[in-house]
Design a protein around this nucleic acid. Structure first.
Length: 643
DNA sequence: GTAGGGTTAG
């Protein structure tokens, strides 16, 4: 046999991934001194059969200069998920002066996509453009679209797609996936329309991505339409991935009966489709249903996988099912799933914090072989929620000592702890750090949390300043500030902030009005209160909301406008003891027996006679010197209680 | 060259 024959045989091994035969051929090649002539083919064979180190060793040893050999190695790294090594390999190839071909570009773009290496991806895109690459084809275009989409630069992906000389269903799928993954459902749907206008028919992959987009934005009607189309195409009989996407879409939209129906009708089920349903329940707080599905899945003869466990742990957390959570923990440990699986570890930490066993959560965190910013943030959130702010602060320190940089979530948790303990100085330091990291730009949540922290600490000037400096704000920002002023008795400022809020283009809502009414009542601002009442009526808010109506009664009562107060109370669709009690409280302060008696009698008639109302009425009589009546009310209270 | 279920806050 000649060297060329060995090359042919090696190519067959590469295709069939026949490593044994490849090794045997390698031996023969060495014996016959054909190595130089066969080195490229050998590298490719080893790379394709997964022997990356052997491939790399030969590549270096024989100073291979063929793009194909280098590309095979790059592709092998991509396959095993080592994108960084793939990019490294590509750089080395260029360093040796070897020009990439279309396949090499595609492989390295894939590596960039998998490692979210946008910078590198841009660099490679530049290379393709500047070298006026002649081998440009639709596959390369698709790889570019995919790279940008996966790196989160969907707009860039869309631009590339627009500039391509031709595009096919794969181009569109890559873009739609990008939009779906970024939860840009509307844009995904627009692309779905546009591709069909261009005469490109959707395939099973398109439907999968578009269902994901629907689920993300809760577009259940659109999802149902797609479902019909899928059934018409007959895809569901053979494509379990599509079935899973359907179950997922319905579950995410909260359409659980439909999700069950689809699951039942699938030709067969695996742990993926069950997990989609379980996660939908767990995500939306239906822990009990999640557990029932988990049982059903096991009954179906399937074993839970790591993603199933992630959802189940969430369910245990929301149900505070500590014992079951511990059982699952043991089960995961027995299966050796916890090793180096930080996400699963984090889900366990979260479960333990939600079940109130913070010590166990911290112990687990210490035991994790790899912990990340999520592990720490979870623990910090747990301590903060349980009112153990001091431990939250300590954990925050420990995390940074360990060299882990806090992210937006960590900062939000720690600011919450600062707010509830009034730790203004600590909050200021965190604020500085947030600015230093440039996290405040365009981050509404963090901005609002900062305003809230300063408000809770009573540093309202600072809260106002932060709000004014925010690059983006919304109604929540304003409500937070107004609530802060109202909470700290700075009622005029609360009311003037309301004016500024409207000037800033934001409409007041329920939360705003609750604070404003409180502020008006507090300073007896009757006219302003009346204005706000009118505004609420214009917005249609005051007549159907018990909380708001109660706040109105309270405001008028506190302003001494008892007539107005019981007028509002009379109009209430549902009269509750709180509103009567608010009115009686005002009567008590003003010792207004007549109004008090009116409110009391109506409360009793409306069956809203709880103990507080009797006590308040008795107080009014007593304050007015009507001792006998006071005692009578007391007797009525006892009778009512006995009854 | 494109596709399924997933951890922290709000």
């Amino acid at each position: 046999m000649k060297a060329a024959d060995y090359v042919t045989l090696l190519r067959v091994c590469s295709k069939t991934k026949d490593l044994q035969r490849g090794i045997a051929l390698h031996d023969d090649i060495v014996k016959r001194h054909y190595v130089e002539a066969c080195s490229d083919a050998l590298v490719i064979m080893y790379a394709k059969c997964g022997r990356i180190f052997k491939a790399e060793e030969l590549l270096v040893l024989h100073k291979c200069r063929s793009v194909a050999a280098w590309t095979a190695l790059i592709a092998a790294y991509v396959r095993i998920g080592q994108g960084y090594n793939a990019v490294d390999c590509y750089d080395q190839m260029r360093h040796h002066g070897i020009s990439p071909d279309a396949v090499a570009f595609v492989c390295v773009l894939k590596a960039c996509a998998s490692t979210r290496a946008l910078e590198k991806g841009l660099e490679i895109h530049e290379e393709i453009i500047s070298e006026q690459f002649v081998g440009y084809n639709i596959m390369l275009g698709n790889a570019l679209v995919d790279m940008y989409a996966k790196c989160g630069a969907v707009h860039k992906a869309h631009d590339v797609l627009k500039g391509l000389p031709s595009r096919n269903v794969i181009t569109w799928n890559a873009l739609i996936t990008g939009y779906a993954q970024g939860c840009k459902g509307e844009q995904a749907l627009l692309c779905f329309e546009q591709m069909q206008c261009e005469g490109v028919s959707p395939d099973a992959v398109t439907f999968t991505c578009i269902l994901k987009a629907c689920g993300c934005i809760g577009a259940v009607e659109k999802g149902e339409q797609i479902h019909d189309e899928i059934v018409r195409c007959g895809y569901l009989k053979k494509d379990l991935i599509l079935g899973t996407a359907l179950v997922d879409m319905y579950a995410k939209c909260g359409a659980f009966p439909k999700a069950h129906e689809v699951l039942e009708e699938l030709p067969f089920r695996n742990e993926f489709c069950w997990s989609a349903l379980i996660s939908g329940y767990a995500e939306q707080g239906y822990g009990q249903q999640a557990l029932l599905c988990y049982e059903a899945m096991k009954h179906d003869g399937l074993s839970p996988c790591r993603v199933t466990y992630l959802s189940i742990l969430k369910a245990c957390g929301s149900l505070k099912a500590r014992e079951l959570g511990e059982q699952i923990h043991e089960e995961i440990g027995r299966q050796g799933l916890l090793k180096e699986d930080t996400m699963l570890g984090n889900a366990l930490i979260d479960m333990y914090t939600k079940c109130g066993t913070l010590s166990k959560a911290e112990q687990l965190l210490d035991e994790l072989s790899v912990r990340d910013v999520v592990s720490w943030s979870t623990l910090i959130a747990g301590y903060s929620k349980q009112g153990q702010e001091e431990k939250a602060f300590i954990s925050f320190e420990r995390m940074q000592d360990e060299g882990i940089t806090p992210n937006v979530v960590t900062f939000a948790c720690i600011l919450k702890a600062c707010g509830s303990t009034g730790a203004n100085d600590k909050g200021e330091k965190v604020h500085e750090e947030i600015i230093r990291q440039g996290l405040l730009d365009n981050n509404l949540l963090l901005g609002n949390t900062l305003v809230d922290m300063y408000s809770k600490c009573g540093a309202l000037g600072k809260a106002q300043q932060v709000m004014e400096e925010l690059s983006v704000r919304d109604d929540v920002t304003w409500n937070t500030l107004i609530a802060g002023f109202a909470q700290h008795g700075q009622c005029e400022q609360a009311l003037s902030s309301y004016e500024y809020m409207q000037q800033d283009g934001f409409a007041p809502g329920k939360a705003t009005f609750l604070c404003l009414l409180k502020a008006c009542g507090c300073i007896g601002a009757f006219l302003k209160g009346e204005q706000i009442h009118e505004k609420m009526t214009r917005l249609g808010l005051s007549n159907n909301d018990t909380m708001l109506s109660t706040a109105l009664v309270d405001m008028y009562a506190k302003c001494g406008a008892l007539e107005k107060a019981y007028h509002v109370l009379r109009e209430l669709p549902v009269q509750n003891e709180v509103s009567y009690s608010a009115l009686l409280g005002a009567c008590e302060r003003q010792i207004d027996v007549k109004a008090g008696r009116w409110a009391f009698e109506h409360a009793v008639q409306a069956n809203k006679n709880d103990a507080l109302i009797y006590a308040q009425m008795a107080n009014i009589y007593a304050a007015a010197g009507m001792q006998e009546d006071a005692e009578l009310v007391e007797v009525m209270r006892l009778e009512n209680e006995a009854w």
